[in-house]
Structures are given as structure tokens and as C-alpha cells.
Amino acid sequence: MSQHTDRTEDVMSNKNDGGKRSARERMQAERAKQEAAARKRRQLTVILAALVVIAAAVVIGIVVQNGRSSSYNAAADAPAGTVGNTRLLIPVGGTTAPSTVTIYEDPRCPACEQFETGMKSTINQLLAQGKIQIQYHIASFIDRHDGGKGSKNAANALACAQNVGLFHNYHDVLYANQPDETNDAWADKTILISLAKQVPGLDSPAFESCVNNNTYGSWVTAVQSDFDKSGYNSTPTVLLNGTSAYSTYNGEDISPANFTKWVDTANKGKPLASIPSASAQALASPTAHNNLPASAGAGHS
């Protein structure tokens, strides 16, 4: 009996215990579930916060950088005498010349200096004969590659010279005095100004303030941006009537003789431009500004 009773009590107490335990377990399970849910919420909040930080940074970044990229207005910001849709090109020579030579050059580019040193007498002769006109794109990407400001400063100074009609002479003086590519000498604007003294009539208070104030900075940026989008990716890029002529044209290497031949072939049967005889003589003279001896920097590539 007592056994029975005991057993009954046992069963009963067991039942009771089981009931309590399952209630406790339920509570624990419920609490765990709530904690898991809370943890999940915290995790989601953290992820959301991280995504918000990222999205905000990207949006702010795009807006800020958009605002910083200079706005270029062709009518107000281009130097006088520039041509093209947005006035990014500097023309040299008679505009009625039958062949157009397009030249992309960076002031700090050593290969451009070699091209100029090797070809400028020929090119100046062809200009003087009215056979070609040149359209210069003054790029300034070497500042990015090698660091520095020399290309941009020089490009701006060239624009200042263009504004007073002395681009070509100054261009030739700069290439004749080009520093080594990795030497950012033209970060110092006084050097650009002192080189301008080699071009009669160029150095003036207006020119100096143009160089010092980076007056054509937004034009310089716009020209480089145009070069970036052109698909051409090195300087010098030289086109003869739109066809690449550097360093080969129709399978022939560029040389003074070949270049003259290519131009003559392209010009066959077309009238030449007439240019004032004084400027023609100046261009053709071997002692002209543009026929200075090669600089010490030549040969570096």
C-alpha cells in the first residue's frame, strides 16, 4: 500500500516536476527566441547602418567630385584664335592648306620633344609652303603619370601665348628647353616666364599674370578631357588628314623625307594655301626661333 502510495506520489510528483520543467523550458525557449530576435534586429540594424554609411559616402563623393571638375565654357574660357566645336584646338598655318596635320602633345613628353626636334624644320617648311595646317591638342596627362604640375602649367602658358598669337614660337622654345620627364621643373612658373623672353614680344605683365593665375586652367582641363575620350592614349599622336602618321604611315617610318612625300601625295592636284611671305620666310629660315638646337634632354624616352 505504502509502496503503491509512494509510487502514486512518485508519479504525481513526477508529473508535477515535468509540468514545472516544461513551463521553465518554455520560458527559457521563449526568452532565447526573444534574444535571438533581438540579436537579429541588432545585426540588421548594424548592416543597415553600414549600408547607409556606404551609400551616403558614394553619393556625397559623386556630387562633390562633380562640383570640383571644372566647368568649361568655350565662349569665355578658351584663348583667342582657338578652333573646333568647343575651341580646344590651336591652329597653326594657312587655314586653306590642303592637308591638316593633327598633333597631340604633352609639354613634358620626351617622345614629343624627339618628334619636334627631328621634324620641326620639315613641318615648318611645309607650313611655309602652304601645304599643311596644324591643329595642336595640348594634353597634360604626364602630371598624373609622374606627379607634378609642369604639364598643366606649361599648357596654360601655351594658351596664354596663343591668346596673343605667339603660340607656335613659344611651343618651339618650350620643346627646345624641355626638362627630363621626371624633373617637374615647370612646376615653377618663373621658368616658363623666363623662357617666354626668348620669344620676341611675348613677355609682358599680362602674359605673366596669365601664367601665374592659371588663367586658362579650365581650358587645359577640357583639352585633356577631350584627349582622354579620343581613344588615343599616348603622345605624340600625329594624324595626317585623320590617318595616324606616327610613328608609321602606310607601313613607312616617319622621317623628314617620308613625311614630305606623304603630304605631297595627299595634296596631289589640290591648291596650296597662301601665307604671308614674311611669316613664310621666318618659318623657312634655319636660324628662326623654331630651329633652335636640340636641348640636352633629347634622347631620353
Partner: peptide
């Protein structure tokens, strides 16, 4: 070009 650097900075 403008946005990627700021994505990198945010990361």
C-alpha cells in the same frame, strides 16, 4: 570614377 574612391573610403 568619382564614386568608387568614396566606396573604398567608406569600407
Amino acid at each position: 570614377g568619382y564614386g568608387l574612391p568614396f566606396l573604398e573610403l567608406a569600407l
